[in-house]
């Protein structure tokens, strides 16, 4: 038998495959060099991509041209189990001395396992540390309360004149700038244009509401100047500040809670109480 000389098509495929693998190797070297030279995300990506693309082309050419494609069949036993085996298995499982026949014992075992399973749920309660306020209280109470001063993001207390007309100023409870449910905003509007009085009252047109959208809690940051409207960047709910921050469009259904404010003896703005309702998204026990 003489050694078969590969046909030209096969030799050409081999050449392509070698070229692809060499390209891949070059890509890998390129990646290493890029890295050593200080790295550049784009070149790192390109070189690594070339390395893998070379591999991919070589392997797929190899799979397509040098080994048989298709042309094989495998028999499929099907999944109808042999009747004898099935009968014998079920018989073994349900033999007279089989544990599954002891109904009473099984019930007791079931009880023990259920109890254990239920008991195993208890430690999950530790996920919420016991010294934290209970969930519903936590959602209703905020750091605001009578006498808490309004500060800006930098922690500086605000006077009424720090809120210019028709601008929105983010305000926070003093000492709790990072609290999740504290953020509020102050605006100064024309008192005559209120079609509905702000729920927290206003000081000569200066009113404060919670910043958290009543839909899903995003900060309602986009103030549409002149219209007295506020837009939520998350799902485009908009609130009409002239009508006590009622939702006028989008998926939000409740007005933003207001914050009652007054001017303290030091001349700075302060809260006269907590929000008129729990801020942010709704929940089952929300009053």
């Amino acid at each position: 038998m003489s050694i078969r000389r590969p046909p030209p098509a096969e030799r050409a495929a081999s050449r392509r495959i070698v070229a692809a693998f060499l390209t891949g190797a070059a890509g890998a070297v390129g990646f290493a060099v890029t890295y050593v030279l200080g790295g550049d995300t784009r070149w790192e990506g390109v070189t690594l991509s070339v390395a893998f693309a070379g591999l991919a082309v070589g392997l797929s050419q190899w799979g397509r041209h040098l080994v048989p494609t298709g042309g094989y069949v495998e028999e499929h036993e099907g999944f109808a189990p042999p009747p004898f085996e099935q009968t014998m298995t079920t018989r073994a499982l349900t033999a007279p001395d089989s544990p599954v026949r002891r109904r009473g014992l099984l019930a007791a075992l079931g009880l023990a396992l259920t109890a254990l399973g239920a008991a195993a749920l208890f430690p999950l309660r530790s996920l919420l540390p016991f010294d934290r306020v209970r969930p519903v209280r936590a959602r209703t109470d905020t750091p605001w309360g009578p006498g808490v001063r309004l500060v800006d993001a930098g922690g500086r207390p605000l006077r009424p004149q720090d809120v210019p007309a028709d601008t929105m100023v983010g305000v926070f409870p003093e000492g709790h700038v990072d609290a999740g449910d504290g953020p509020a905003f102050a605006v100064r509007l024309e008192p005559g244009r209120f079609s509905r009085q702000p729920s927290g009252g206003h000081l000569d047109g200066l009113a404060v509401w919670s910043l958290l959208c009543t839909h899903a809690g995003c900060p309602v940051r986009l103030y549409l100047r002149g219209t007295g409207r506020l837009l939520c960047p998350c799902h485009q709910s908009s609130f009409d500040l002239l009508a006590d921050a009622r939702p006028v469009a989008g998926p939000a259904a409740r007005p933003l809670p207001g914050l009652p404010i007054e001017v303290g003896p030091d001349g700075f703005l302060r809260a006269a109480g907590d929000f008129t309702g729990p801020p942010g998204a709704g929940f089952w026990s929300r009053p």
């Binding site: 893998f52 693309a53 991919a56 392997l59 797929s60 190899w62 495998e74």
Partner: peptide, 25 residues
């Protein structure tokens, strides 16, 4: 009662590895 196609070794091994390399590339 049957499956017709290519065998795992060698065709599918090569093709599958090629796909892996494509994904990474």
């Amino acid at each position: 009662h049957n499956v017709v196609g290519s065998r795992l070794w060698p065709s599918y091994t090569l093709r599958s590895l090629a796909l892996f390399a494509w994904v990474l590339a």
